[in-house]
């Protein structure tokens, strides 16, 4: 049951105008110059390495941190590396109003938690969610708590398939589990 919750310190991906950055594409998350890499452990150093203002993210992030991003996060290419780089850094969760379709699947299949939350733009605009806040989210219900401010927010719960794959530790384990019946 404890896998249903995650808590962590957040990084809010803001631009210079203090707004959530939208349409962050996979080349900004993980540049094509490093696509030849196949070891997940080597991918972390390049996370957000081509996103203006965030190029030093891999040096700042700590295991368990949570990323808050703008809509259409992970637009663009199909590269699994753009998920793998956050797994490599042991990032706990990414929350955004929406994700690129392929990116979302890639995260789900890797057993990496991603949640959609429509309230994010508003929360960020009224400074009710800022970098370094501590949050706690329930994947099954979507209930979120900003522990630092004792305020609540609501994300979309994981679908059954997403949760089952996450809980199994990824698509491969899930596949072996269901084929065993």
């Amino acid at each position: 049951m404890e896998k249903s919750f995650i808590s962590g310190r957040i990084w809010v991906l803001l631009d210079q105008n203090k707004r959530l950055i939208e349409d962050i594409d996979t080349d900004q998350i993980y540049h094509n110059a490093f696509l030849h890499i196949t070891e997940v452990s080597q991918m972390g150093q390049y996370a957000l390495g081509n996103l203006e203002g965030w190029k030093d993210f891999s040096k700042k992030a700590s295991p368990g941190d949570v990323l808050i991003a703008g809509r259409n996060f992970g637009a663009g290419s199909s590269r699994q590396h753009a998920v793998g780089c956050f797994i490599s850094l042991k990032i706990g969760l990414i929350i955004a109003p929406s994700f690129g379709a392929i990116y979302f699947r890639n995260a789900v299949n890797s057993g990496f938690p991603v949640l959609r939350c429509q309230e994010l733009d508003e929360l960020v605009a009224k400074k009710a969610m800022e970098t370094e806040d501590e949050i706690k989210v329930n994947f099954r219900s979507g209930e979120g708590l900003n522990v630092s401010r004792n305020t609540h927010f609501k994300a979309e719960p994981m679908s059954t398939v997403q949760y089952d794959i996450y809980e199994a530790g990824g698509l491969f384990n899930y596949g072996k589990r269901i084929s065993k019946g």
């Binding site: 290419s77 299949n109 890797s110 698509l171």
Partner: peptide, 18 residues
């Protein structure tokens, strides 16, 4: 449909996807 390498590995093995 484009997919990441986890999806495609699973597709190679099973011929299916969600």
């Amino acid at each position: 449909q484009g997919m990441g390498d986890v999806d495609i590995t699973f597709a190679f093995k099973t011929g299916k996807t969600w």
